[in-house]
Design a protein around this nucleic acid. Structure first.
Lengths: 237, 237
DNA sequence: TCAAATCCGTAACCAAAGTTACAAAAAGTT
DNA sequence: AACTTTTTGTAACTTTGGTTACGGATTTGA
């Protein structure tokens, strides 16, 4: 854990919920407590494998990582794609789980920090105020993750492909505030995300286009009939 | 918040993760900080409705509550069934969300405690040690919830009904340690839980029985061919 | 700039699961 | 015990979506 590494972490601190509301001093003090490790990976490298020994939470310093689950048959579902400043493995850290519950893959070239679970949970020797803030931030992060899982669950509890697409597009619309927007995923990734087969996704999107509900080309999508889309999201065809 | 109510809470403290590792004194001190409310409900009463104003986390004092989500069409999915000592709404509490993300229904006659979100998050005037423990317990609870959501997500990410049934039965087996066990749900509820149509569930269970994989009568189930069941859980038919 | 790799739409075919309806069995009530 | 209600299995029929395969478009990279 060299000075260079500490600087790296400080450079992302403002983008990282874990270090929210901490000033430079607090952060420095905290970082010396944490005993973290920093490593870099190439695209598609496996950073942590589901089932492997859990050494501590991860923080994305640079690049993107994907949280995926897969079964032996090879069906794979993308839980989340994390960027700069985002965390993974925080659930395992506070439940005493000793194994990674999901696989973490480098989605791009990336750098990640790992912090041992016990350094997070255990009080540090000196009562540092930053440690208290860390815990509070952690609560917020965990809650938000749980809400994200909830949202994912909502998608998968929709039975029709059309419903999933419609819900997804409506969420993109709410996020962007515009009826024309770009998707952050390609068809393969979107199909994974919605847990459907890629050709089935294409087919349904085209049907929705033919019915005048939406329009699209590659990753750009335009909502043409908001009411019809909302109806589709609720299972009315 | 009368003495009677404080006693009620103390009586479930040992079954409640939120008050883990606290002695009687700490608990009493803490409870006076929290400004909680206690109410009772009849079966099928709506305790909190998705979208309604979020007033604070809930703790089940007695009976059972169900966490459900439903869309306008009436498709309903049971997220969780909570008993004595278990929490709900903790995700909203730490994310500043002002609305209930799910609906809470009284599954049986029940009594619940609501604690205002700000009383949990805000430091109490006197630095009470119990408050620190409360926060640490909260971290554990939240993490465990997130893992539960993960698990639910695993069920729904399985595409075949057979796979979902097999996974579910294997989990029951792991829980009970026996190859013969009783299901806590009837067919309707199980179908809801696995997010499939009830007749489809029945049909598939019967097929699995005809193939010698399992045996069942009403809510009693026996696993006859463990290997076949495990194979089915992984999508091999 | 050309070749290779990737992405996307398309179509035919087939398997899986939803829908509806009904009857038998079980549980609960009077 | 007789009746009602709820739970479950069953079957016919329909719809949805997965599978496989292919070709054109786009992007990447040498």
């Amino acid at each position: 854990m060299e000075t260079k590494h500490i600087e790296k972490v400080q450079s992302i601190a403002k983008d990282c919920m874990l270090f929210k509301d901490m000033n430079g001093e607090e952060l420095s003090a905290l970082l010396t407590c944490l005993d973290f490790k920093i490593r870099s990976f190439s695209r598609n490298d496996i950073i942590n494998m589901a089932g492997d020994f859990f050494e501590g939470i991860g923080v994305v310093i640079d690049g993107q990582v994907a949280v995926v689950k897969e079964n032996i048959v090879g069906e794979r579902i993308i839980f989340d794609i994390l960027g700069r400043g985002e965390l993974f493995g925080e659930m395992a850290a506070f439940t005493g789980v000793r194994k990674w519950p999901a696989t973490i893959i480098a989605n791009t070239e990336c750098t990640v920090m790992h912090v041992p679970a016990d350094k997070l949970v255990g009080q540090c020797s000196q009562t540092c105020t930053a440690h208290t803030k860390l815990i509070m931030n952690m609560l917020g992060i965990l809650s938000r993750k749980a809400l994200t899982l909830n949202r994912q669950l909502e998608y998968l509890s929709i039975k029709s492909i059309r419903g999933r697409i419609a819900s997804f597009l409506l969420e993109q619309y709410k996020k962007s505030g515009k009826t024309t927007f770009m998707l952050a995923m390609n068809r393969n990734e979107l199909a994974d995300f919605l847990n459907v087969a890629r050709p089935s996704l294409s087919r349904e999107m085209c049907r929705m286009r033919d019915e005048g509900m939406i329009d699209f080309h590659r990753s750009s999508v335009r909502i043409r009939d908001m009411e019809a889309l909302k109806a589709a999201a609720q299972g009315m065809h």
